[in-house]
């Protein structure tokens, strides 16, 4: 509020310009992080609709859910859970290194996180391919004959909607991780300015967290 001339404030050791309406770098960081948390709230509510649908249909057809989930591959689901949990660890380390201006280590951790995301999607691809092959598809296109329940397609509608929406979030997360990787390589961040790494980290942990709920709800029924 003190200066009106187009005086430019740059964060020490970086080329990041503090936007004119913030008082200092911390003010910007603080507001950005707050905004990110609000965004995560909206993400949870977006998935919330699907979790409600899951709850209602499982209440209506408990035995069908039990029969239908037998066709999912628990091993691959568990593998993906481990991969994502590990990626959350490397993401947290990447943020930590960024905060201490250890750029090379931060970059390496981001690369590992990115590769974990790729692994997750490759595993998911093989799972999906198997389901398509068997005719385990959303309700209207469901053709599998191995489950003795005429509403089993509904379970696979839920399966594809929930893991599909989660998969889109993994892709978006990879975009963000790739972007901060590139900026870390370029040397944009140091202990005074690491907001994008921090926010990407928050987002990635949410993507991980949602999977932590999806895995038992879909793969480990009964």
């Amino acid at each position: 509020m003190t200066d009106h001339n187009a005086q430019v404030h740059v964060v020490e050791g970086t080329n990041h310009v503090i936007p004119h309406h913030y008082e200092n770098a911390f003010h910007e960081f603080d507001a950005s992080k707050f905004g990110m948390w609000l965004f995560l709230v909206t993400e949870i509510l977006l998935f919330g609709g699907l979790f409600v649908a899951y709850t209602i249909f499982r209440g209506l057809y408990p035995e069908m859910f039990h029969l239908a989930h037998e066709e999912l591959n628990k091993g691959l689901g568990a593998l993906n859970t481990v991969v994502l949990l590990f990626s959350s660890l490397t993401m947290a380390l990447a943020v930590g290194y960024a905060q201490r201006t250890e750029r090379a280590k931060s970059f390496n951790m981001l690369v590992i996180t990115f590769l974990c995301a790729v692994t997750f999607l490759v595993v998911k691809f093989f799972e999906y391919r198997h389901k398509f092959h068997e005719g385990l598809l959303p309700a209207k296109f469901y053709t599998f004959e191995g489950i003795k329940h005429d509403k089993a397609g509904l379970f696979y509608s839920l399966y594809f909607m929930m893991t599909g929406l989660h998969g889109i979030h993994v892709l978006l997360g990879m975009g963000c991780i790739g972007w901060v990787m590139w900026r870390t390589k370029r040397g944009d961040f140091n202990k005074n300015y690491f907001t994008p790494v921090e926010l990407t980290g928050l987002y990635w942990h949410l993507v991980d967290l949602i999977w932590i709920f999806l895995f038992p709800l879909l793969y480990l029924i009964g």
């Binding site: 209207k140 296109f141 509904l154």
Partner: peptide, 14 residues
């Protein structure tokens, strides 16, 4: 588009 059936009683939805 995909006939997920969440809202279609014929497919088990509501």
């Amino acid at each position: 588009v995909f006939g997920i059936g969440f809202f279609d009683p014929k497919l088990g939805g509501d």
